[in-house]
């Protein structure tokens, strides 16, 4: 009963939060303040959907409640790729490849990474969860080191472009990028929604899924591809979100009290968006820009993850 109330209450709450975010202290300035805030809100909505959807789907196909794409090194890889692009092509790389080219290339790389990860680490389903987690954390550190190394090689102007990528922020995206991202997320959403019941079955594990007539390898590949696209979109829109995904996913499971994706995915999206709005609101109104969303997210979600691991019983 309780979970039903939460499921229904979250939407009005989300709308109220969004309205408050757009209107509070805006002076109803329709010419500048409100459009700017709407852009930020759009970035949060898209980013929230990406983070929640990719994390929950990733946890379902890997059969645990800890691993998320961000932890398995997806975001670090994205940032390394951006650094490499700037190193090899200069900051003109954005202009040279065009926005589409960059996004397309990033997605191809993420798809390749998904494939490699699945082929060697996740595929057999026999690897210990903590082992995968340690692998992901260390890989993230190593990739970050390489990114920093490349930063040394590039000129200061390009450095600042790159530095911008490395922090969570809602101000990065312009209208056009939001439009493309929105279209991509919509596309993923349509495919994802069509195959939603299969995702429920995938969560039962390879053997059970096959036995229930779901072509497990095919659907896992499909979902890894969708996840790769979502992570690429969210990282390009917001920057790295690190432990946000794990936080959102676990809060969602606790509130939804169900593992049906029909319930968890929308709820997860709502929670992620709300958290982003609250964080941004805190940064703007409470901390007076003396902190950033990225730092807040790291602090809160990191502490939550630490607590989760310490309390872990090994069956997560």
């Amino acid at each position: 009963m309780n979970s039903a109330i939460i499921r229904h209450a979250i939407w009005p709450l989300l709308i109220a939060l969004a309205l408050a975010f757009v209107l509070v202290g805006s002076g109803l300035d329709l010419a500048y303040v409100i459009p700017r805030r709407l852009l930020r809100l759009a970035a949060m909505v898209l980013g929230g959907v990406c983070v929640a959807w990719s994390s929950i789907a990733f946890q379902s196909i890997t059969g645990n409640r800890i691993l998320t794409p961000a932890i398995m090194g997806y975001e670090a890889l994205y940032l390394l790729l951006q650094a490499l692009l700037i190193l090899t092509l200069g900051s003109a790389s954005l202009a040279l490849l065009g926005h589409h080219g960059n996004v397309l290339l990033s997605m191809l790389c993420m798809l390749g990474y998904s494939w490699a990860l699945h082929r060697w680490l996740l595929g057999n389903g026999k690897n210990n969860l903590y082992f995968l987690l340690l692998f992901g954390l260390v890989l993230t550190l190593v990739l970050t080191t390489f990114t920093q190394f490349i930063q040394l090689r590039i000129s200061p102007g390009e450095f600042s472009v790159l530095q911008g990528f490395a922090y969570t922020s809602f101000n990065r995206a312009d209208g056009q990028q939001l439009l493309y991202s929105g279209a991509l997320v919509l596309g993923v959403g349509v495919v994802g929604f069509k195959t939603l019941p299969s995702l429920d079955v995938l969560a039962l594990g390879r053997d059970q899924a096959l036995s229930l007539g779901v072509d497990y390898p095919r659907y896992v590949r499909l979902y890894l591809a969708l996840i790769a696209i979502l992570v690429a979109v969210s990282t390009s829109l917001l920057g790295p979100t690190a432990f946000m995904g794990i936080f959102v996913a676990n809060i969602t499971y606790a509130l939804a009290r169900s593992s049906r994706h029909r319930l968890t995915l929308p709820l997860g999206c709502a929670i992620a968006i709300s958290l982003f709005i609250v964080a941004q609101f805190l940064v703007e109104q409470v901390f007076n820009y003396k902190t950033t969303v990225g730092i807040l997210v790291n602090l809160v979600c990191g502490a939550y993850f630490l607590a989760l691991m310490i309390r872990s019983r090994g069956d997560a």
Partner: peptide, 8 residues
């Protein structure tokens, strides 16, 4: 199914 953590 020795370990089953899905909430169903």
């Amino acid at each position: 199914h020795p370990q089953f953590s899905l909430r169903l």
